[in-house]
Write a protein that binds this DNA or RNA. Structure first.
Lengths: 353, 353
DNA sequence: AGGGTAATTTAAAGCGCTTTGGAAGCCTGT
DNA sequence: ACAGGCTTCCAAAGCGCTTTAAATTACCCT
């Protein structure tokens, strides 16, 4: 059933029916009711393509996530992010279209996305420090919001980000105040902006506490369980091992914990761990009391906020670049404690090898 | 730049230009070349909405993933699945539109999806054992492919699934042949079809080996690390604890391993573990040699296959319901071994508490 | 040169909707 | 009775593309 048929059935013009259904004022109350009833009865749903063509808007948002040959994993955070974003889209009647783009021919691809015209705006995922997409998008004039920021970009664009630097500065400071002087960082890939900022915060805190940086305690990679495990295993075998770890993801923290246990140490007593916790639905940090002390910030909330922001930008393009910085909470779990006074037993052995 | 402008610029009719760009035969070779060059020069991209309206096809595929109040986590497998599916879409020029639907008003929602007409077909995720969506979709006449199956549905529909039953039967059998007689199953939620089938395979293998089912060794829940941890912790404290575990996800297996280690036992020697491994990009089972013995089947490959199937169904609706059953490999890792002859030391203590 | 066929090109209709520019109907007040 | 102003409705144009039906051009053969 399309508009024409519906109109004929009602003995009305398409115009009137269309107006009635779209809430325009110039239609008689009784008529509107009649139309609405009939529409429901016949399960009338306007054709989105035709509507889009007529209005010039597609009522959908593009989520563009980069995939590269070297890092072809879809960020596990993505599922939760879109769950949040979807809430906003559903309410506003928008659809979500997903585009995975190989990096390389961004120029052409993003231009195509705009010219194809099946999205009214896009959300940019996983920005790198110097992300060429931002200048490109500003140039294209397509409304967009970045999830994260690009440190090297000075242009003014809309973003939703977590305070990565602040969170890791605070977490590192917290460890330092517990007396830890050998604090390791197991980070995500540091050309990703969030990882860069986290390291920056970590370094700032070390400096503020008069601790010096030991490259042996810095690691970066895809944030897998194995990265955590391998990093901790190696670092704990150092002559002067770390007494605390900072981790960029729950997944990695789980790996850290395994290596710590395997070394015969107890997490929270012999070795402290703070991880960032994105509050992913499938990766909860404990049920009631958190297992890990963590900097916590909901990716889902970020998704919701980014979507809201983009919808606002679309509705009123003049409302200028918007920014939203989410603060992470530092929540106390059982994985941190004061630096042990005596070296834990296991360490002696290792120290003397 | 739109078609009309491009045509005017070339002193050609829209018809010819359109035909030239869409590879129709009735256009002069020289003209076609001229058109193609101009199109590239002006960065001409046809408007997808208009094209869709004219052709009646939207060139996009809907991925519909259910979210419920009780289980509102987006399956972590999803990211990898769409990575695979996207490969097919990109090649075929399709877009992917994502729809999260709250369960409850499926009837209306799926009908809307069809009537809105912005997808040419859909992929159905996370089918339950008796999934009402399948009958509904068959009725609606929208091409669709289910990722997984619905055991209680007898109708003939297209699906791509892994041989869950076979994989778990084989894994269980393998453990039984290693001498294990107390084999635990830590499964996903069993109203999900895949989980049901896995249990079915497990039960079949137990029976085939003359082992009886102990309800104390069966657990099902959201497949988190904590589910694995809690399950193993409780079961290992039983008077007659399991000597082997079957796990439905890597995440859960990691939890199992932790509990096993905490109990002072060694995985692969004192306790065996086999897990299913979806080959998720962010959750690799070891670098070179697998950590866990696992039933392995790539979700990404399944996504690719489902997408290919759906595209085929759209191109030729007559080609009937298609099916594709992916076999899982049983790969040997370091988490399994023969059942220990003497009970591991730790168990004695616990047995006497 | 002329007739017929094949190769190219075009004008125009149509996809299903919104929206502009009127028009018709109905009051009101004089 | 009629100008003026509302309210309510409608016909038709237009969004940017494809596609049908028809027109034009090119080509070959006698």
């Amino acid at each position: 059933m399309n508009l024409k048929e519906l109109a004929k059935h009602l003995n009305l013009s398409q115009t009137t029916v269309s107006r009635a259904l779209n809430g325009y004022p110039e239609v008689n109350k009784a008529t509107r009711l009649r139309v609405e009833v009939a529409a429901r009865e016949f399960n009338y749903t306007p054709n989105a393509r035709a509507k889009g063509l007529a209005t010039g808007r597609s009522m959908s948002i593009g989520h563009v996530i980069p995939t590269s040959s070297k890092r072809e994993m879809v960020n596990p955070v993505f599922g939760d992010f879109i769950t949040g974003a979807s809430e906003a889209y559903v309410q506003a009647g928008y659809d979500l279209v997903l585009t995975l783009v190989e990096d390389g021919d961004e120029e052409r691809l993003y231009r195509n996305i705009r010219d194809k015209g099946n999205v009214d705006g896009i959300i940019v995922h996983s920005p790198q420090m110097d992300d060429s997409r931002i200048a490109l998008l500003l140039d294209l004039g397509l409304p967009f919001v970045v999830h994260g920021r690009a440190s090297d970009i000075t242009a003014n664009y809309s973003w939703v980000d977590m305070n990565n630097r602040g969170a890791f500065r605070r977490a590192t400071g917290f460890l330092a105040e517990l007396g830890h002087r050998r604090i390791a960082l197991v980070n995500g890939l540091e050309h990703m902006d969030f990882a860069y900022r986290r390291r920056d915060g970590y370094l700032a805190a070390l400096e503020a506490h008069g601790l010096k940086v030991d490259p042996a305690l810095l690691r970066a990679g895809e944030m897998t369980e194995m990265l955590g495990h391998a990093s901790a295993q190696e670092m704990l075998a150092l002559p002067d091992p770390p007494t605390a770890f900072l981790s960029s993801s729950m997944m990695t923290a789980i790996g850290l914990r395994r290596a710590i246990q395997e070394a015969g140490l107890q997490m929270g007593r012999d070795v402290s761990v703070i991880t960032h916790d994105d509050e992913l639905a499938y990766l909860k940090n404990g049920q009631t009391v958190p297992i890990f002390t963590a900097t916590r910030s909901s990716v889902r909330a970020a998704g919701r906020r980014a979507a809201d922001m983009l919808l606002r930008l679309i509705a009123d393009p003049g409302c200028g670049p918007l920014h939203s910085l989410l603060e992470a909470e530092l929540i106390l779990g059982e994985s941190t404690g004061p630096v042990p006074v005596a070296r834990p037993e296991k360490t002696y052995r290792q120290g003397q090898t």
